[in-house]
Simulated assay, not measured.
Amino acid sequence: MTLPAGLSMLWEQTSPDAALLERFGFTGLPDASEWLSVTLREVWGIDLHGVGRLVISDRNAIVWVRSGSGPLVVKWSCATEQFDRLAASAEILSSLAARGVPVAEPILTTERRARAVQDGPRGPLSMAVLPEVSGVWLDTADLDAVHAAGQCLARLHDALGRESGDSALQMDVGDPRARIRTWLARHDRREVPEASSRLEALLVDLPDLEDTPQLVHNDFRAANILTRGSTVAAVLDFDEVATSHRVNDLARASVYLRTRFTDWRPTSVATRESLRRGYESVRALGEAERAWLEALILWHGLMAIPFGSDPSEWAASLR
């Protein structure tokens, strides 16, 4: 999938012009570009030369621009309740870059901040400016690239484990066994009863996980992984960073790795196995993690089944 030039929606079936006005207060792409030009110059000291595309995703916007500092990607959000998390994740991103992790390191403001809150026409916007990384989104049919992605995820976990973590990112903590049992009791629609029964049976004898929950990416999938050939050029979008067990992040990635924007399909068994082999070539799973991986993949797979029609056959992938 190639994102179109100009103004567009990332996945929603709605008018981008209406969304731009209703969510952010801009009357059109020229209006947004003019505001962005002033903001980049005053806050980052960057001269804007042109806007290539602006893509809206929920209450967030991503803008690809040409500038005096080269090609950049500007991200802003109007979700004020997320501003503390976004600021914390931007700081984490800067720290990861310093550790040699392949990420797009935020360009600091003139006041040396990784993220800034600016007044938009319809309220405050939390903004980050990043260098545009050349590459293509991960092709999950390229098992060598998937293997490299698994290695990258293991190294990313190691780097994130060295971060203390801002209190704004302390999420997703708790006994996974209790969380899964609660989900099975309250939310499982029994779309694939054999998978639900298998998950219930696995929970009975699973050992306790011995590792301490830490920061994890929490959205490691094709849409957030850029590659060059069969190597990882950059891991993108750390906005969902949370505290969890590493094996849970690996399981989530195993289920959602194939997904990309509106192309939302389950990951093949061969791709999942290649991701795991890559991961374990850097960081071997412990005995308890190995036991938990199947259960967690089943759980995330069941949660991924959409309500109503299931054209991508998420349910079938669990049978």
Rank of each mutant, 00 (worst) to 15 (best):
W264P: 03
S230N: 10
S281E: 05
S196K: 14
R190Y: 14
S196L: 13
L202E: 11
A270W: 02
V216A: 05
T182R: 15
I180S: 02
A168I: 11
L203G: 08
L285Q: 06
G286F: 00
D219I: 02
T271S: 12
F261H: 12
V173A: 15
A195Y: 02
R198L: 10
S274L: 00
L226A: 15
T271N: 05
S244D: 08
T259M: 07
V247H: 01
A251N: 04
D175V: 08
T271H: 03
D166G: 06
N224D: 07
R162Q: 15
L293N: 04
D211W: 02
M171R: 15
D237A: 06
G286Y: 00
V282W: 02
L285C: 05
S167Y: 15
D208N: 15
R283H: 07
H245G: 02
F238K: 00
R246T: 07
E294K: 06
V282R: 05
R265F: 08
E294S: 09
R252G: 05
Y256K: 03
L184E: 05
W292E: 01
G229A: 10
L184Q: 07
V255F: 02
L202N: 13
R276E: 02
A222W: 06
R228P: 08
D208L: 13
P207D: 14
R190D: 15
R181Y: 05
M171L: 12
T231F: 04
V204R: 15
T271F: 02
W183V: 11
V235N: 00
A234S: 13
S254W: 01
R265L: 08
D166Y: 05
M171W: 14
L160D: 00
G286V: 02
D166C: 09
V282E: 06
V173Q: 15
E210D: 08
A284P: 11
A253H: 00
T212K: 13
L160R: 00
R181G: 13
P207H: 15
R276Y: 03
D172Y: 11
A270V: 06
V255H: 01
S268L: 08
D172F: 13
L250E: 00
F220E: 03
F238S: 00
L250T: 01
D263I: 11
Q214I: 09
D172R: 12
S164R: 15
L275K: 00
D205I: 11
N224T: 10
L203M: 12
V269S: 09
R221I: 05
Y279M: 01
T231E: 09
D166N: 14
D237P: 04
A233I: 13
D166E: 13
E191C: 10
D205M: 11
R177Y: 10
A288C: 06
E287N: 10
A222G: 12
L298D: 01
L215W: 01
L206R: 08
R283E: 03
D249E: 12
R228Y: 05
H245F: 04
V204M: 12
P207L: 10
D249I: 05
D219S: 08
R162C: 12
S268R: 07
